[in-house]
């Protein structure tokens, strides 16, 4: 089953790439607008063999990690606070909704003005995206705590702080973790869009430079590197998630033995 799925995936990929390559070579589409897979692969190989790409990759990774960590931390802390203090959540609710409704791309130029062309403005953009994902999931996770489990822990003698440590946080953990995978994607978007709109380094910069000189090969090569980059990050997060949430039943496996 698994092997068959992989085979299909490989087949589709080969078919797409071969179709693309052929249509360019046969002159059906213009290589100027669409480049071609062989050339893109060549460009990626060149980037890595000359080592040119590493600096860009590193800076994008650094911005992504910072945005991810800061945004998640702020989101979890505020999510906890608002979920546990109903008055605070009632007061702040419209502000949070209003802020979340702002399209983040609009903020990029302002952040560049405020924080300069360097890493800080990209991190800030990423944080505005990551924060809301972490915040909403933490809030929801706390609100969805099983009331029986909560009452049981209270009857067993849990104080407010102990409830947080033994019930609220572990219960919200599965929500927070599922949000981490979305968050990492948003952190990358923040970093790359920020770089794209104004910077001197990073994957987004690389792509925007290529676009500036109508170098479609460079644009596609940048996109491929970016996609692989995100898939790898997502894989790392999902490994960490699986390690930390061993107590959770696999879907459809509820009920257990005997």
């Amino acid at each position: 089953m698994r092997a068959r799925v992989r085979l299909w995936q490989l087949g589709i990929l080969v078919l797409l790439l071969a179709g693309w390559e052929l249509s360019v070579r046969l002159g059906w589409v213009d290589a100027f607008f669409f480049s071609k897979p062989s050339e893109i692969a060549g460009r990626i190989f060149e980037w890595f063999s000359t080592g040119e790409i590493y600096g860009h990759l590193w800076i994008t990774l650094w911005e992504t990690m910072l945005a991810f960590l800061i945004g998640t931390l702020l989101g979890v802390v505020l999510g906890l606070w608002l979920a546990l203090v109903p008055t605070a959540s009632a007061v702040l609710d419209p502000f949070i909704k209003a802020m979340n409704s702002i399209p983040r791309v609009i903020l990029a130029p302002i952040f560049t003005l405020w924080f300069g062309l360097g890493v800080a403005s990209k991190v800030a953009l990423g944080v505005t995206l990551v924060f809301f994902v972490a915040f909403f999931n933490t809030y929801q996770g706390i609100k969805e705590v099983n009331p029986v489990v909560l009452a049981n822990a209270r009857m067993l003698g849990a104080s407010g702080r102990q409830l947080l440590a033994h019930v609220y946080l572990p219960s919200a953990a599965s929500w927070i973790f599922s949000s981490l995978r979305t968050s990492i994607g948003f952190a990358v978007i923040g970093a790359v869009v920020g770089e794209y709109l104004g910077s001197a380094r990073g994957l987004g910069y690389l792509i925007s430079q290529a676009e500036g000189v109508f170098d479609t090969t460079g644009v596609f090569a940048g996109m491929v590197v970016l996609a692989v980059f995100v898939v790898l990050l997502d894989w790392v997060v999902s490994r960490v998630e699986a390690r930390l949430l061993v107590w959770r039943p696999a879907p459809g496996q509820e009920g257990g033995t005997v």
């Binding site: 029986v148 489990v149 049981n152």
Partner: peptide, 10 residues
């Protein structure tokens, strides 16, 4: 409790 009150993460 009537329903399951065990902490599923423990």
């Amino acid at each position: 409790f009537q329903a399951d009150g065990l902490l599923p993460w423990k």
